[in-house]
Amino acid sequence: MAKREISIWFFIGISLLVNGAIICAAGIYQYLYPPIEKVVLFDTHAGIWWGAVLFLCGLLYCLKFPPRRTAN
């Protein structure tokens, strides 16, 4: 009987992927609609590029360590 095996690295990939997507989206929203009270270095738009970096790292982990079926 086959059993689905999920690697710890896949969980990490999911975490980085989802967090990266949310942060990048929030960064784009702030870029389009800048808030009145801004953080220091707001113009670097850290949310966009940091979110994108996390998203890409997460994607890489998810593709490299996908859930697989193993003999039980």
């Binding site: 949310i22 942060i23 929030a26 960064g27 801004k38 953080v39 220091v40 270095l41 850290a46 949310g47």
Partner: peptide, 11 residues
């Protein structure tokens, strides 16, 4: 709080 906006702060 100095550098992180919404999303980054949550992280």
């Amino acid at each position: 709080a100095r550098y992180c906006g919404p999303g980054l702060l949550g992280l």
